[in-house]
Simulated assay, not measured.
Amino acid sequence: MAITTDFLNFIVPIKKIHEKYPGGWEQCLKDHEELLNGRVWYDDHLFRDGAMNGMDMEDILKHWEAMGFECLAQKDDKQYWKEACVFASGFGSTTLPCDWLEVDRKTQSVYLKGTAMGEIVYPPFNDEEFR
């Protein structure tokens, strides 16, 4: 499966949420209940939250880092996305290298590397506009 993107996208593998999110996947869904199918949606492998500007995205990143997620890492003096990433749909790419995310530029959707792209998950509030 894959998820569509819109503006700035904070993406984290659900596997990491099971491992690191306080209360796991169930608590993550409860914490984002009011945002589900608005700015938050997910498939079988990836969770997506979003923002329309860099300041709001910075707040999302800080929130997840405060919960113990290592969003960024550094190797050979270069930063890369480790346990989460930011994908800029207008540019069709991640804002830094991310080796666990695959991008389908034609549909502006992303999916977990090593899995099949398959069906794309769109937010149901505006399904037709995204296609």
Rank of each mutant, 00 (worst) to 15 (best):
M1V: 03
M1D: 03
F7R: 10
F7V: 03
L8P: 02
L8Q: 06
F10W: 10
I11E: 01
I11P: 02
I11M: 01
V12P: 03
V12A: 06
I14M: 11
I14N: 04
K15F: 09
I17D: 02
I17G: 05
H18K: 14
H18F: 11
K20C: 07
K20E: 06
K20I: 15
Y21W: 12
P22Y: 10
E26K: 13
Q27C: 04
C28D: 01
C28L: 13
L29E: 09
L29Q: 12
K30G: 03
D31I: 08
E33T: 10
L35C: 07
L35I: 07
L36R: 12
N37F: 10
R39K: 10
V40M: 13
W41G: 02
W41Q: 02
D43Y: 05
D44Q: 10
H45F: 15
R48T: 00
M52A: 09
M52W: 08
N53P: 03
M55L: 14
M55H: 14
M57V: 09
M57F: 08
E58Y: 13
E58T: 14
I60G: 06
I60Y: 04
L61G: 03
K62Y: 08
H63K: 15
E65Y: 07
M67E: 13
F69V: 12
E70K: 15
E70P: 03
L72T: 09
A73T: 11
A73V: 05
Q74S: 12
K75M: 09
D76R: 05
K78I: 06
K82D: 10
E83N: 00
A84E: 00
A84V: 08
A84T: 04
F87V: 09
F87D: 00
F87M: 10
G90D: 15
G90C: 09
G92T: 09
G92Q: 04
T94R: 05
T95C: 08
L96R: 14
P97E: 12
D99R: 11
D99Q: 09
W100K: 07
W100F: 14
L101S: 03
E102G: 02
V103D: 00
V103T: 11
K106P: 00
T107I: 02
T107M: 03
Q108E: 07
S109Q: 01
V110P: 00
V110S: 00
Y111G: 00
L112T: 01
L112D: 00
T115C: 01
M117S: 05
M117P: 04
M117G: 05
M117A: 08
I120K: 03
I120E: 00
V121N: 05
Y122H: 08
P123R: 05
P123Y: 07
F125M: 08
F125E: 06
N126D: 15
N126G: 12
N126R: 13
D127I: 11
D127M: 11
E128G: 06
R131F: 09
